[in-house]
Design a binder for these strands. Sequence first.
DNA 1: ACCTGAACACCGTTCAAGT
DNA 2: ACCTGAACACCGTTCAAGT
Lengths: 224, 224
Amino acid sequence: MAKKTQRTPRRSDGLSKELIVKAAADLLDERGESALTLRALTTRLSTGYGAIYHHVENKGDLLAAATDDVVSRVMTGVVVDADPREALRAVASGLFDAIDAHPWVGAQLSREPSMPALLEVYESVGGLLDALGVPERSLFDAAGALVNYVLGVAGQNAANAAARDGGEAARSAFLGDVAARWSRLDPDRYPFVHKAAAHLREHDDREQFLAGVDIFLAGIATLR
Amino acid sequence: MAKKTQRTPRRSDGLSKELIVKAAADLLDERGESALTLRALTTRLSTGYGAIYHHVENKGDLLAAATDDVVSRVMTGVVVDADPREALRAVASGLFDAIDAHPWVGAQLSREPSMPALLEVYESVGGLLDALGVPERSLFDAAGALVNYVLGVAGQNAANAAARDGGEAARSAFLGDVAARWSRLDPDRYPFVHKAAAHLREHDDREQFLAGVDIFLAGIATLR
DNA sequence: ACCTGAACACCGTTCAAGT
DNA sequence: ACCTGAACACCGTTCAAGT
């Protein structure tokens, strides 16, 4: 009798959701959002589909869990004993930097804005705005607007990340392209964008993001 | 000899990109983002894949064109002769309402924020901020931040739309769910979110969005 | 030039069967 | 309980062939 077809040997160590989420995050970081397929994941973990689906609901669950990990790492790392204004800037730039480093987090946050980790974000931002003296009546609108701004830029940042995937050279080539197109526009019909073209090449996304946070905080300061 | 297999008759009128984009937008409006497949499109247009790919680069091109249509319709419809502050609010709520009516537009805008129609948005917002007296030095940061805020909330709104797909009942069920979960949180550890739960049930997305715009404008007013 | 539709190279997910 | 991997029901896209 011929022996049965040899199966690939199963992993000796047990699988866990934690391990699977870690592998998914690595795949996303190393090769981008399109590289996270269940197939690639089974290969990387030397396992089968069923093993993964045994620990994880579906692909969305996987992305949500990986995103939550990143966001909650940011939130636990943020300094709390500074003054509220500085702490708010720290939360904002912490999130910005994390999303800059992991663009898939930005995409996921704009897809599914009700993740557990966002609770920490809201709590932190709301508490700091309260400490800043924002009246209770405006607190929820202000927190909502600020968190939305941060997540909004996060999403945009993630979307733009594709254009600079090839590193700094690809980024400036892309920006140069847009700037060239914009400066070719009729200055009578598009005065603002025409002028903006000059600023585009030298502009820093992170600085512009923080300038936006400051505008927000200035606006919030008028709510008395 | 048996005659050849009968092919489905070709459309008598010619196809065009415009027609294809219109059909795609209808499909998106009627049955949501996941319903836009090339297969569904060929059926709806009684044509083949090749016909579509002859007029359109790929699916992304299609989504971009459909989104551009919606956004530019908003931008041409916005009143311009009001005072700048009111005009800015009109642009913001025009975009909000359009995305509320077509959630797929929000998703697409946060995926690909460099579409032609956004040029009109930037031009309009930049020009109005200029008219509002924002100094040139701050103009680009301010415009960037405001457009980002609007698009950010747009994306969030689109993402949340899934939860209220079943109309008002589904929406309030979803919000009630979140509110119930939030109010069950330990008020010592989550004082802000715990309190926010009460506001959540009665809160109006559109009003909160406009409150955010006002905070922004108040912040911008301090840039002198 | 414009269009047809079979075929290709993928997906995420399920599930009977194994240990 | 935990895992395997063939199979299913989809995708977007291509392309030889038709008119």
